[in-house]
């Protein structure tokens, strides 16, 4: 009997630890983790990689990535990444940050690392809410969106409008790559991977600072089913946070 030859077409990336994550069903973090791990494998840089974890739902990202990892206090990932990268310019350093981390408590660190053109890559997960602490308003929470701390909906006259991270950083001279992506469907997920890949490639080539914003889902805190959450990204977030490349120098 002739054995049928199988060809491996899909596998768990080596850069991803084989374990169950703590993320909720329908959460976007797991998808982005996997995209990042795939990119690390494709460039063959797992053994040089260092992930800087934020404070937020992805605080344990270093438990899921099969490479070196570093905790940062809330909002300080860009400063920690700066320290790491300045010591080891040949390592691949990724600052992984949520919306509260990057655009509220750590706005200063985010802007200044980008402005210095630090040669690391930022992956910015924008899911319009604070997940870990139980669904409070984020700097990116949409107008009228109900959260634990905006029980009648976000009122821009009271707490300001949602902040657009890519547009903000796009006013700086130094960054070489700024792109906003989404993981609400397969096509956009592939585009996200492409953007992450560009961001890592820029770093490998020593070109400077890359920023990839990923519109992501939080079904639990949004009070939605996973598909509803994906649709909400498409219908509510994308119109306010336009997808696409802002800079590719």
């Amino acid at each position: 009997m002739e054995t049928k030859k199988f060809k491996y077409v899909y596998d768990k990336p080596e850069a991803l630890v084989d374990k169950v994550t703590h993320y909720c069903p329908g959460c976007g973090h797991g998808i982005v983790h996997k995209l990042l791990a795939e990119v690390m494998d494709e460039f063959g840089v797992r053994e040089k990689a260092i992930i800087v974890a934020p404070v937020g739902c992805s605080v344990l990202i270093y438990d899921y990535m099969n490479f070196d990892g570093c905790e940062a206090s809330h909002g300080r990932a860009p400063a920690v990444a700066t320290g790491l990268k300045r010591v080891h310019p040949d390592n691949i350093v990724v600052a992984y940050q949520g919306d509260g981390d990057l655009l509220a408590i750590g706005t200063g660190e985010a802007i200044h690392a980008a402005n210095r053109g630090e040669n690391f890559t930022t992956i910015f997960i924008n899911n319009a809410i604070y997940g870990m602490t139980g669904g409070q308003m984020a700097p990116t929470t949409m107008e009228n969106q109900i959260t634990a701390t905006t029980p009648t909906g976000r009122d821009p006259m009271d707490v300001g409008y949602p902040i657009r991270g890519c547009e903000l950083l796009n006013s700086l001279e130094a960054p070489v790559f700024i792109e906003r992506c989404s993981i609400h469907d397969f096509k956009n997920t592939l585009k996200t991977k492409k953007a992450i890949k560009k961001g890592i490639k820029n770093q490998i080539e020593g070109r400077g600072y890359s920023f990839i914003e990923v519109l992501s889902t939080c079904p639990t805190n949004w009070g939605m089913k996973p598909q509803e959450a994906a649709d909400w990204v498409k219908d509510t977030m994308v119109p306010y946070y336009p997808l696409g490349n802002f800079r590719d120098n």
Partner: peptide
């Protein structure tokens, strides 16, 4: 650094390295 907070966190990163 842009602040004392950033500076000590850069120290943290460099020391971790």
């Amino acid at each position: 650094a842009e602040s004392e907070i950033a500076a000590i966190n850069m120290v943290y990163g460099a020391s971790a390295a």
